[in-house]
Design a protein around this nucleic acid. Structure first.
Length: 580
RNA sequence: UGGGGUGUCGCCAAGUGGUAAGGCACAAGGUUUUGAUCCUUGCAUGCGUUGGUUCGAAUCCAGCCACCCCAGCCA
């Protein structure tokens, strides 16, 4: 196809220091060294469009795309749409959108297994002709009985030795729609006594009189995953077919199907340039799924949470879906870095959520502008400036990156600070404002609390403080003021709603078999709505960023779905690390 | 108790016969107008376990233990 040694590609092949070796990279390097596929690396990400993508899929997406890119290879996007019953165009669109958002570009057009239905049918005919497949009349229940058990061999179907001509006729009539759903199926003739259940004459085609989101009513027989996947890989010239561990037992079947088809016909059906190199069949290799503690990743349960309104939809910011993570304020880069950092191996493991949190903090710390926002306002009246005092302070958008520019922050005679930054009787080690104590207002002056105003019930309603006017941009004289707190002008600040998100579950493994209903371990505080927050005006200016570090609080992003003119809604992506 | 897999620090994970990488977490210092970031240091005489081979074993061999996957006309 193309010159493998093309040096025009930037950053190809070179593994940067943040990537580590894993068994798949090793295998590919080895295959390349042996010149196994003519030096090609071609992978694919093959989702079934029956749900939304989640963080687990991200691992597979990153693996497939990066491993191809590292070797100047290609990665296809193929919808594995062999079961129209559960699939829909809505999912197809969402999945494409998610992959692009993650920053990957698939090779050429989007593929669908259904693109190959005609070819697949032809290969099935080939298997029938060579006596490797037959039409079986057993019902699904009967087939189960005939299959045997894990420890007992199965029995041959009564139709196993049907004549080729009869099978051909029957299969053609299946396609023509002569039979009802489930009346018969096409099965591979392998071994009903195989210790591998997948090899006990697996079903290749089933009858489903149902409309397909891509092929409409053209077909009423649909090929199964096992039959379809390997052939689709072969057609697309896939070299490395990466999938998860539960398909390990399917690999012998993957290979059986390909090896029982003629090499010539497969090569002929493929996208590949027919003369360039020797045709080599694709190979499946399996890796462990990503699991995260405190989170559920099972599609069925995620759907249940959406359907029963435990969450507000597939893009609820608490969901582990890519749509949810995105709305929560996670960046694509953070997710990619996370996927790289968890590695790829064959041992099933549960990754600590802390790793994901680290990845997003790491990215946002470097890239998000700072701003001040008070979540739980307590009014501070500055007693030694005029009531209408207004001053504009100049502050850096980022403490370490001047390129991110500066901003103006209005400072007035009445400001708000966070309630938790004041304690009348401070606990040991408290560095914030106390009655009679001093504290630095971030980017502004040192103030001293002279008076604590309370209501009849004894609640603090207001603080009267005096400013040390000689402390703007310099240290106070003769004493040390340790604490620094954030603040916002009461009159010039902008009101906003903030949503604080936390993990959805309060147990490490909500998918554990010991838990009969995941609803029993939901974290009731996974969402806290704050309605009276106030932030500095820079966050609402024309062209303002959508993601900020609210200093001393955490990273927050504007919720594009619910924010509108005059009504700002921010989601907390993640708190700052807090060693206090 | 059929078959296929996996077991290396609290959590991931490199390592493929030459004397245990790295990240997260954690701990202790330092810098700091964010209790953040950043920097420095510490963190497995040990690689599921018991034997064996070897000058030498996480790596090879044998046994044992634990956990995961498979009996959809789902993927």
């Amino acid at each position: 196809m193309t010159d493998q040694k093309s040096d025009s590609t930037p950053n190809d092949g070179s593994v940067d220091s943040s990537t580590s070796s894993n068994f798949i990279r090793n295998k590919i390097a080895h295959d390349l060294k042996e010149n196994k596929h003519g030096g090609r690396v071609h992978t694919r990400f093959p989702p079934e469009p029956n749900g939304y993508l989640h963080i687990g899929h991200a691992k597979s997406i990153c693996l497939n795309f990066t491993v191809a890119a590292e070797n100047s290879g290609l990665c296809n996007l193929r919808f594995d749409d062999t079961n129209p019953e559960k699939e829909s165009q809505e999912y197809v669109d969402a999945i494409k959108d998610n992959i692009s958002w993650l920053g990957f570009q698939w090779n050429g057009q989007v593929r669908y297994s259904s693109n190959y239905f005609e070819q697949l049918y032809g290969f099935a005919v080939q298997l029938i002709e060579s006596g490797k497949a037959y039409v079986c009349d057993l019902s699904a229940d009967e087939a189960r009985e005939y299959r045997g058990t894990l420890t007992e061999a199965g029995k041959n179907s009564p139709n196993r030795d049907r004549a080729v001509a009869e099978n051909l006729d029957l299969f053609q009539r299946m396609r023509a729609g002569e039979f009802a759903d489930g009346a018969c199926s096409l099965r591979a003739k392998i071994d009903m006594a195989s210790p591998n259940m997948n090899m006990r004459d697996p079903v290749l085609y089933r009858i489903r009189h149902i409309e397909h989101h891509q092929t409409g009513t053209e077909w009423c027989i649909y090929p199964t995953y096992d039959y379809t996947h390997c052939i689709s890989d072969a057609i697309e010239g896939i070299t490395h077919s990466l999938c998860t561990l539960e398909f390990e037992d399917h690999r012998p079947l993957y290979d059986w199907i390909l090896h029982n088809l003629s090499m010539e016909s497969l090569h002929h059906a493929s996208d590949l340039d027919k003369s360039d190199y020797d045709y080599v069949l694709p190979e499946q290799t399996e890796f462990a799924k990503l699991k995260l503690n405190y989170t559920i990743v099972g599609k069925r349960k995620l759907k249940e949470m959406v359907d029963t309104h435990v969450v507000d939809g597939w893009d609820d910011p608490r969901m582990p879906t890519l749509a949810g993570l995105r709305r929560r304020g996670f960046t694509a880069a953070a997710i990619r870095n996370f996927c790289e950092s968890v590695g790829v191996a064959r041992s099933e493991s549960i990754v600590d959520l802390g790793m994901l949190e680290h990845a997003i903090r790491d990215d946002l710390d470097k890239n998000s502008p700072r701003a001040m926002c008070v979540l739980d306002p307590l009014v501070v009246v500055l007693t030694n400036v005029p009531a209408d005092h207004l001053e504009t302070l100049d502050m850096a958008n980022h403490p370490k990156n001047e390129e991110m520019g500066r901003r103006s922050v209005p400072f007035t005679g009445r400001i708000v600070i966070d309630r938790s930054d004041f304690e009348e009787v401070p606990p040991p080690g408290f560095k914030r404002l106390t009655a009679g104590g001093e504290v630095r207002l971030r980017g502004a002056y040192v103030i001293k609390c002279d008076d604590v105003v309370k209501d009849d019930a004894g609640n603090v309603v207001e603080l009267h403080c005096s400013i040390d006017l000689d402390t703007l941009g310099k240290k106070p004289e003769g004493r040390k003021v340790k604490g620094v707190i954030h603040w916002v002008s009461e009159s010039r600040g902008v009101p906003l709603q903030v949503r604080l998100y936390d993990r959805l579950f309060n147990v490490e493994n909500p998918e554990s078999k010991d838990i009969e209903d995941f609803r029993d371990c939901l974290n009731e505080n996974s969402l806290i709505r704050l309605g009276s927050c106030i932030a500095e005006p820079s966050i609402a200016e024309q062209g303002a960023a959508t993601s900020f570090q609210f200093e001393r609080e955490g990273y927050y992003c504007r919720d594009e779905k619910e924010s509108r003119e005059g009504k700002l809604v921010f989601n907390r992506t993640i708190t700052l690390r807090d060693s206090w």
